[in-house]
């Protein structure tokens, strides 16, 4: 009888040991995945809070059919030019030229730099534009017509 009881107890004990190992690793992995995601969200929120832009000129040149938007990065986040979106009267505009401080090749829009967007694909003055940055911070402005 003694062998039976201690043998069974050993098997059950081993199973509990294995079970605890499996449960522990699954719980720790799940917790780590969620905590990484939360850390990522905190970082994103910080970037969003540090992002600020200002449109200081939005002009429509009817003669040349050109919309020019100049915006200043007034926050402290380094923004990406290719993540910037432009809506002209709620129409998503693509295929425009950009330049940051006169440099048309750069993809970085750093703090206190001016991004200039030149759109030539519009037929008429849109009246209003909205500029959206990568973190989601956006500004709107009305366009002014220039001769």
């Amino acid at each position: 009888m003694g062998f039976s009881v201690s043998g069974s107890a050993a098997i059950i004990f081993a199973a509990m040991f294995v079970g605890f190992g499996m449960f522990h690793s699954a719980t720790v992995n799940g917790f780590e995945t969620v905590s990484d995601a939360q850390q990522d969200r905190t970082d994103r929120t910080l970037v969003q809070q540090n992002t600020a832009i200002e449109i200081w000129s939005a002009t429509w040149d009817g003669g040349a059919g050109e919309l020019t938007v100049r915006a200043n990065n007034t926050g402290s986040t380094e923004l990406s030019v290719d993540e910037v979106d432009l809506l002209a009267d709620n129409r998503y505009v693509r295929g425009y030229d950009t330049s940051v401080g006169g440099d048309g090749a750069t993809n970085l829009w750093l703090a206190q730099e001016t991004l200039e967007i030149t759109v030539t694909s519009l037929d008429a003055d849109p009246g209003r534009v909205k500029l959206i940055t990568g973190p989601g911070v956006a500004v709107t402005a009305s366009t002014a017509e220039v001769a």
Binding site: G30, V34, A37, R41, G136, A138
Partner: peptide
């Protein structure tokens, strides 16, 4: 855990004017 992390990582913004 994967589902929750996916939900936490998801963030969309309606950017229409």
């Amino acid at each position: 855990g994967l589902d929750v992390s996916e939900n936490v990582r998801t963030d969309v913004e309606i950017i229409s004017d």
